[in-house]
């Protein structure tokens, strides 16, 4: 076993243990801020696995999108809704957790069996390694052009939808209290569109 292969093996073991323990921490730790930071660690480790799989572009995209955008978005959402509230107890919670744990363990056993017993067609063709980025670009602009364009439309729709859903209509009080605002803005609006519904 050369130094390169043993390094690869050690990296894989470290990354996979970080992934599993971090994912368990995300769902089990009570403090949700710790969960969010652990989720960032899981995303970084998954990017490391992609590097082990000869996919540097997807690893970079994973870090940019997941760690840079999704995780920061989750942290901002936690800041916005961070209220220490006492969750009221519901009956049968333990039983519910036990049964859902059984279902997930069964699913895990099923997936493990499929993973191990199937004869995958390895080794396949030799991996192309460093020119994978060029190949992804060729795919995106030839045979995957339609999904690529659909993804751009989807991102636009998601952006508009997020703005519409999360918008906070707070211009009503200033509009009603001053006279210099043109009256037709107020007259054209219906009653509770411009009211701040978050004040109560």
């Amino acid at each position: 076993m050369t130094i390169a292969t043993s390094t690869e093996l050690i990296c894989f073991l470290i990354l996979s243990s970080v992934i599993v323990s971090g994912a368990l921490g995300v769902v089990l730790i009570d403090n949700i801020v710790y969960s969010a930071f652990l989720l960032g660690g899981v995303f970084m480790s998954v990017a490391g696995l992609y590097l082990l799989l000869n996919a540097s572009f997807v690893a970079a995209a994973q870090i940019l999108v997941y760690v840079g955008a999704v995780n920061v978005l989750i942290l901002f959402a936690i800041m916005l809704v961070n209220k220490q509230e006492e969750l009221k107890p519901i009956k049968g919670l333990k039983i519910r957790r036990f049964f859902s744990g059984c279902v997930c363990a069964g699913l895990l056993a099923l997936l493990f069996r499929v993973d191990i017993t199937t004869n995958w067609a390895t080794p396949g063709p030799k991996a192309i390694g460093e020119i994978a980025t060029e190949r992804i670009g060729e795919h995106l602009f030839t045979d995957y052009l339609l999904p690529f364009e659909l993804a751009s439309v989807l991102l636009l729709m998601a952006m508009i939808g997020a703005i519409v859903l999360a918008r906070r209509d707070v211009i009503s009080i200033e509009l009603e209290s001053t006279d210099s605002i043109p009256q037709n803005i107020i007259n054209n609006s219906t009653d509770n569109v411009l009211l701040d519904q978050s004040s109560d």
Binding site: A61, V81, L154, L155, A158, A162
Partner: peptide, 17 residues
Amino acid sequence: ITVAAAEAAVGLAILLS
């Protein structure tokens, strides 16, 4: 990854609402 980013944005907006 693209779809996940869009899903996270819309999901958190729904959550805020």
